[in-house]
Write a protein that binds this DNA or RNA. Sequence first.
DNA 1: CTCCAGGCATATT
DNA 2: AATATGCATGGA
Length: 300
Amino acid sequence: MDSVIGNDFKIAAPEPLFAGGAIVFEGVAPLDLAATFDCGQAFRWRPRGDGCFNAVVAGDAVNARLDGDRLEIRGAPRGKAKFWAEYFALDVDYTAIHKALRADARMRACLAFSPGIRVLRQEFFETLVSFIISQNNNITRIKGIVERLCSCFGETVGEDHQGVPDRAFPTPSAIASLSPEDLAPLRAGYRVAGIIDAARRVDSGELDETALRAMPTADARRRLLEVHGVGPKIADCVLLFGLGRFESFPVDVWIRRAMVALFPEGLPCCTAGISGIAQQYIFHYARNCGTIPQSKQPRD
DNA sequence: CTCCAGGCATATT
DNA sequence: AATATGCATGGA
């Protein structure tokens, strides 16, 4: 079972081009890199100020930029073009998704707020640990803790133009042998127990990504809930952002309140495996706008 | 200073 | 099953 998404919203990913040492995908719209990287699903992408974004992903220090509807990724080997197409969900038909979501006026309001958000397919272990860190935490500090985790225990994969080392997210085995005292420099508080438990379960094979991907979402969720520090919200975030289960979505008290206020009858137009994506638009709208649109919205 | 952050574990009702 | 409380830390 690969990504779970309705057939209506599957397309063939564009073929990669290779130009100037970059992996290039054309026709990627809709995609807004700033909105996508900064909507609370990823914690390592940093804007360089000129429209480029830097991160270390899958062991490569990469640079992503958008030129119209051309996505350029530098720093990754050609052989990983398929990985990057999946990372940016270029095989998901966001045009069709938007069309379906726009059938509802309230969903239309959320979508209009940040139409370039895509739900990324991020690496499993990094997503699991990052969202354990996110517990009762704010995004700025989450980013800081994740950076310190990489800086302390991640493999150096190069250095940036200022000579600062680029470090990968630590491997499960690199964390599995650590004690809470070793993680004290992270200043992650009570979350360190969860970080270590997650690393040990993954490192030992008890929690296996391949197995999780092969099992139904409900079973994978049950397995994730066994990890210390992983409750319903974080499990759903990991399913959505780290295991490509676009039909799953995080539902905590807050988002439930926003959802119910917006959609007392339940999420519309979202039954074909994209409720997680719909949720991300709702979440971002409610977080940044702070207001809940009424059920009656003006037509386009 | 206070309030709270993409919650969870645990105890109590 | 539902609700209440403590929690490390530091942004805003």
